[in-house]
């Protein structure tokens, strides 16, 4: 599993990254969490709002800080 957090250094993006790492840890999954900070790269995903949450190259949510619980739901579906 490959999780990408789209967003530059803003507080919201950092919180989403932290929650994602925590969710992966709690579920004990083999997943990487990377942060995409370059605007050019972010725009490749066609979002207008950061932070974006990408799972295996598919944008699942954007402009929203997911809670750890919500991320767990997304990852286990």
């Amino acid at each position: 599993m490959e999780i990408k957090i789209l967003g530059t250094g803003c507080a919201n993006c950092k919180r989403l990254e932290k929650n994602s790492l925590e969710a992966v840890k709690e579920l004990g999954l083999e997943a990487t969490v990377t942060k995409v900070e370059d605007y050019g790269d972010i725009m490749q995903y066609g979002i207008l709002r950061t932070p974006g949450f990408v799972l295996d190259e598919k944008v699942l949510t954007y402009g929203k800080i997911l809670s750890i619980e919500e991320i767990k739901q997304l990852l286990t579906k």
Partner: peptide, 17 residues
């Protein structure tokens, strides 16, 4: 429109695009 200033850049780029 719900809009947070931290999304100003992606929004700007998206509009220009």
């Amino acid at each position: 429109t719900p809009f947070c200033s931290c999304s100003a850049i992606p929004l700007f780029l998206g509009f220009v695009e």
